[in-house]
């Protein structure tokens, strides 16, 4: 699971002027040749900062994303669904571990990242600030939010930073079970009783706006975006990712006989592009800035978990230990 292609609070490009032009040219040539960048290689500050921000937000999204689904483990219908959901939630937390490690290779310690999450300085995907009222909401996340995440992750796995690509390869392999499981759950609701169908339809109505928000607003194609795309940090525009998601999943939703709550949603066969009603971007901004339905409780759960575990971590600390940046 992942928090969308949108990396919040972009960094200004003013730092590029201070970079060594020869080193910058060699760095860009390496990326142009399709080679990966490894942690000990020279890299521009902008590249380092943007990657830290992006990978860190991705890691936070995995940790926080486990909460709206995790709460349904005890109420999932039947033993098999409980086991599968438990395994899925465990995977998401495992993905956060892999991603925090990849971000650490760029020089930000795990402690700093978690501090920034809990204090609200660092963001995570907006979609997880919405509540899962029913089992159908949980199924929506497992199928469609994960599907959106996979669209982003498959693109990012072709990026230029070695440790992030390696983490994503592993994550994508694990996500294939999540997607199939989520689709399986929704097929069962779709082919079930009228009440089950209604339950999923209501979930779809609730989640469609956050799902469209998931990929972020249309990119302003600035010099900044162009550089990040040339450096293979950003692998596609938010609109391209959203279009790919719509292309792959709208037919599958329609196949099950559900109605997507957007009368303007239609594919132009000539261009292959989907037309849709712009979701409420003011709501998106509001939720990012902390005023979503669940922002406070998500951070509160993390904060209390940190506090409650503190004595255990302190008891285990050894004076022989020393923090070092992971190698790869």
């Amino acid at each position: 699971m992942y928090g969308g292609g949108n990396t919040f609070e972009g960094i200004k490009t003013d730092s590029l002027a201070q970079e060594d032009p020869q080193k910058l040219a060699a760095f860009e040539a390496r990326i142009a040749r399709g080679e990966k960048i490894e942690p000990t290689d020279w890299m521009p500050q902008l590249y380092r900062k943007q990657l830290i921000r992006m990978i860190e937000q991705h890691a936070h999204s995995e940790i926080i994303g486990a909460l709206p689904e995790g709460t349904w483990i005890t109420r999932a219908p039947g033993f098999k669904r409980k086991m599968a959901l438990m395994a899925k939630v465990q995977d998401e937390v495992g993905h956060a571990q892999l991603l925090y490690s990849a971000a650490e290779t760029l020089g930000k310690s795990r402690e700093e990242m978690i501090n920034d999450l809990i204090s609200g300085r660092s963001k995570y995907s907006n979609v997880f600030n919405y509540p899962t009222f029913t089992w159908a909401d949980c199924c929506f996340i497992s199928w469609l939010v994960d599907a959106g995440a996979i669209v982003n992750q498959l693109a990012n796995a072709k990026g230029s930073y070695g440790p992030y690509c390696r983490a994503l390869d592993r994550i994508c392999a694990e996500e294939s079970f999540h997607l199939k499981y989520g689709h399986h759950c929704v097929i069962y609701l779709a082919s079930g009783t009228p009440h089950q169908r209604e339950m999923f339809q209501e979930a779809l109505n609730r989640w469609w706006t956050p799902m469209m928000h998931f990929f972020g607003p249309s990119d302003k194609i600035s010099a900044h975006t162009e550089i990040l795309m040339r450096w293979k940090v950003k692998m596609g525009t938010n609109d391209e990712m959203r279009n790919q998601f719509l292309d792959m999943y709208v037919p599958k939703i329609w196949e099950l006989g559900f109605t997507i709550p957007d009368p303007a949603l239609k594919k132009d066969p000539a261009t292959g592009k989907w037309a849709y009603t712009e979701p409420d971007w003011e709501e998106f901004k509001r939720v990012i800035n902390g005023d979503g339905p669940c922002n406070k409780e998500r951070l509160a759960v993390r904060r209390v978990a940190e506090e409650r575990g503190r004595w255990v971590r302190e008891a285990l600390k050894s004076p022989k230990m020393n923090y070092v940046t992971p190698l790869a």
């Binding site: 310690s109 795990r110 809990i118 971590r313 020393n322 923090y323």
Partner: peptide
């Protein structure tokens, strides 16, 4: 969330090595 304390604990930043060695 229902089981959270009424008042959240004060925000204490993690100390270095809170996440141990690598």
């Amino acid at each position: 969330v229902q089981r959270l304390p009424e008042e959240l604990p004060p925000l204490q930043p993690k100390a270095p090595l809170d996440q141990f060695g690598s």
